[in-house]
Structure formats: C-alpha cells, structure tokens
C-alpha cells in the first residue's frame, strides 16, 4: 500500500527534474553594441595614433607620383580568331594597313600570354629582337634591321629575349659645340 505514493512521488520528481532542466544549451553571445556605445568608442579610438612611435614624415603623397598605371592603358591589344594578348606601348614597330584591324580587342576574345599568341600567329606577326640599349633609345637599329622593316609586310613587334619590349625613340647625340647667338 505504501509503494504507490512512493512510486507517484518518484514519477513526479522525475517530471519536475525534466521540467527544471533547461531545454536549451548556453553559448557565448553578446548583444550588438548600441549606437551610443559605438560613438563613444570611436571618439576614444580616434585619439590614438597607431603610428605615433614612428618619426613623422612630411612632403607630398608618394603614391601620387610613380604610381603603377593600368596595364591596359600602357599596352596595345593584338587579337585574332578568339585570342588576344597585350604588348607594351611602343613595342609594335610596324603595323601594315592590312593588319591594323587586329590591333584592338576582338569582342569575346580570351587573353593569352604573348608566347602562346605569337606561336599561333607567326604567319602575320614577325618579331625583331632588340638589345637593351636599343630599347632605351641609346643605340640605333642595325642597317639590315632597318632594311628588313622597310620590306616586311607583317605586323612587327620588338622583343627582348622573346618578350615584347617598348622601344624608345633614338636619342639624338648632343651637338659638340653650342651655337652662340649674337646679340644685336
């Protein structure tokens, strides 16, 4: 007779125990900061100069000078039959009228390296290997190269060790003696 209330008590205790257990677990969480808190934190943070331990430099912003410019603006695009490549400006030495239409981007063309593009287009592109001095404009082309350029009907690209290179205009040697302008 006494076992019944005891069983009931145990059952009730078990139920209460199940009810008392949190149905959910705890995790690391925080409330998002309020605007007031953030503004206060920002005011404090802006008073700290993270570079204060370094000597202050002055002068113009160095990034404004000698800044890398866009490779597309500094290049000529050559494209043909779905492929395109970039060569530095002044690398194309000669563009015959018949190939002028290829010195632009063909819509939808895929860019490839110069080496890959040239390998597939040797029929209408010719390269002229130049020296560093010639690229700098400090040395003239050899006579045979000038003759070759005069007779070749292909698009001609200057290369250095196989890579397209810009060729600066040949620098005129400075006159040995300066002319004195007589004053009236």
């Amino acid at each position: 007779m006494k076992t019944i209330p005891c069983t009931l008590f145990v059952c009730a205790a078990a139920l209460l125990s199940a009810k008392a257990q949190p149905a959910v677990a705890a995790m690391q969480m925080r409330d998002v900061a309020s605007q007031e808190e953030l503004l206060l934190e920002r005011r404090k943070a802006l008073q700290i100069d993270p570079m204060k331990h370094l000597a202050t430099a002055t002068g113009e912003d160095p990034s404004k000078a000698n800044q890398p410019t866009d490779i597309l603006a500094e290049s000529d695009i050559i494209s043909f039959r779905g492929l395109a490549t970039l060569v530095p400006k002044r690398a194309i030495l000669q563009t015959p009228q018949s190939y002028a239409g290829h010195v632009k981007m063909e819509p939808g063309a895929r860019f490839v390296s110069w080496r890959e593009f040239y390998a597939l287009n040797r029929g209408w592109i010719t390269t002229v290997e130049v020296s560093r001095e010639q690229a700098e404009g400090n040395a003239p082309f050899a006579e045979e190269t000038r003759k070759f350029l005069g007779t070749n009907r292909n698009l001609v690209v200057a290369t250095f060790k196989g890579g397209p290179v810009s060729v600066l205009p040949l620098k005129e040697p400075a006159p040995e003696t300066a002319m004195q302008t007589p004053t009236p």
Binding site: I71, E74, L86, V87, P88, K89, R90, A91, R110, F111, V112, S113, W114, R115, R132, A135, E136, F160, G162, G163, P164, V165, S166, L168
Partner: peptide
C-alpha cells in the same frame, strides 16, 4: 577568364618589358 601578365619597368628610362612568358 583571367590571364596574368608580369611587367618590368626600368627606372628612370621607362622601358617596359613583358616578362609574362618568363
């Protein structure tokens, strides 16, 4: 499709060499 190019800029001559195939 992205294709990568490497350029070498000589200072101060401004000669530009395409080293992409290198």
């Amino acid at each position: 499709i992205y294709t990568n190019f490497i350029r070498q800029f000589q200072t101060p001559t401004n000669v530009v060499w395409d080293a992409s195939s290198e």
